[in-house]
Design a protein around this nucleic acid. Structure first.
Length: 370
DNA sequence: AAACCCTCCAACCGCGTCGTA
DNA sequence: TTACGACGCGGTTGGAGGGTT
């Protein structure tokens, strides 16, 4: 387990390489090969540690290194390989002739990761992000806090009613998130490093509490009221579906639509609504036809087809269920890294609700959250 | 013009693994 | 089997350069 001594222990030079140093290194290796990296600097007349020489050679000076921008094909390959290799940069680099692991790692960190995030995908799992739902409790707390503040400064009846609706809407979305947690927990063995799953029991309890807290008319308003058996069936079906369906389907919410978009527009004026005409006709088809993301063999192809469509918006494919569903679509372009701005939509009309506008665009909420 | 901010990437650091005595 | 040296990998840093205010 010996560790290489640090360069500055011996007063060796660190930092950027000069052209003379480069020349010395290249000349020596071309004449003698690198042999022992530890011995090389002395033999080559360099005041550097062997590690630094190796790095300089492998990342910069080696003759077969390809420099310059990554081609779309290379970008595609990196994405595909990363989706099942993870941060194994050297393994990825071995599939890209002339590219170094360091270069690929930098390219990933500065470009591809951000690109995936902006598209609403988790760069580690390559699945639609779920952190919006993780923040829902806080969002709901904010709405409730706002209600409290308004006790001293009551607004008109219409406004408070809208706030209440927003809160109920948030609760419904959170219920969906918890449902999903329940299902993905039971299939967590196939869900690598997703980090979404909490305790099934606590999620279920929270779920039931939330459902109880929703007024009946809220559910009626949304065209359906769940009884106990339906509710159990829903969990069961979403669980079994999660166990048999592709990973990215875990992030679909298997509930009826929250409400009729037209109706909602009338009743909740500040709830913005964008209709996504599926620019992704081909994407959608591709996704629908590639439900085997769990399977490494087809995972590759799936990603290929999905990513080939850049920069076109990618919508997650709907689950093979007769139930309408909500899903996470990618935030609008230009959304910054780490933004929680997202939208939920449901198939068959593909209507998106902008949560940021729903909760955070109101001045009072901005004040609270700041 | 200057200050500030952001992005990019070469290089460093620390740890794990491998080979060998 | 163990200890040690060397190498390779992945995460992180820091400075250069470009853009913005």
């Amino acid at each position: 387990m010996g560790r290489s001594p640090c360069c500055d222990e011996n007063g060796l030079k660190k930092g950027p390489w000069t052209t003379e140093e480069d020349k010395k290194l290249v000349d020596f290796i071309q004449a003698h090969g690198h042999g022992s990296w530890r011995a090389l600097p002395k033999l080559a007349g360099l005041n550097r540690c062997g590690k630094s020489c190796r790095l300089r050679w492998t990342n910069y000076l080696k003759p077969d290194i390809k420099r310059g921008k990554f081609s779309p094909d290379e970008e595609q390959t990196i994405l595909n390989l990363h989706s099942f290799l993870g941060n194994k940069w050297s393994a990825i680099a071995s599939h890209l002739p002339g590219r170094t692991d360091n270069e690929i790692k930098n390219f990933w960190n500065t470009h591809l990761k951000k690109k995936l995030i902006q598209m609403g995908f988790d760069p580690m799992t390559h699945q639609p992000r779920t952190d919006l739902f993780a923040t829902l409790p806080q969002l709901m707390a904010l709405v409730q806090l706002k209600d409290l503040l308004l006790i001293d400064h009551p607004l008109d009846h219409q406004t408070t009613r809208l706030q209440a609706e927003a809160l109920q809407l948030a609760k419904l979305q959170y219920v969906q998130y918890l449902l999903q947690s329940s299902s993905s927990t039971s299939s967590s063995s196939s869900n690598h490093q997703n980090g979404v799953v909490s305790s099934t029991a606590s999620a279920d309890i929270e779920l039931i509490n939330l459902l109880n807290s929703l007024p009946n008319q809220q559910l009626l308003h949304h065209h359906h009221q769940f009884n106990n058996s339906e509710f159990s069936n829903m969990i069961t079906s979403s669980t079994s579906m999660a166990a048999t369906q592709p990973l990215h389907h875990h992030n679909h919410i298997l509930l009826p639509p929250l409400c009729d978009p037209q109706e909602e527009e009338e009743q909740v004026p500040f709830l913005t609504q964008t209709t996504t005409t599926t620019t992704t006709a081909t994407n959608g088809n591709d996704c629908n036809n590639n439900n085997d993301i769990n399977n490494n063999n087809t995972n590759h192809n799936n990603n290929n087809e999905m990513m080939n469509s850049w920069p076109v918006e990618v919508l997650p494919s709907p689950p093979p269920s007769s139930l309408p569903q909500t899903s996470i679509s990618n935030p609008t372009a230009g959304g910054g890294e780490g933004t929680s701005s997202s939208s939920s939509s449901y198939a068959g009309g593909v209507t998106s609700y902008n949560w940021t506008e729903l909760f955070l665009d109101e001045p009072i909420l901005s004040e609270i959250s700041l």
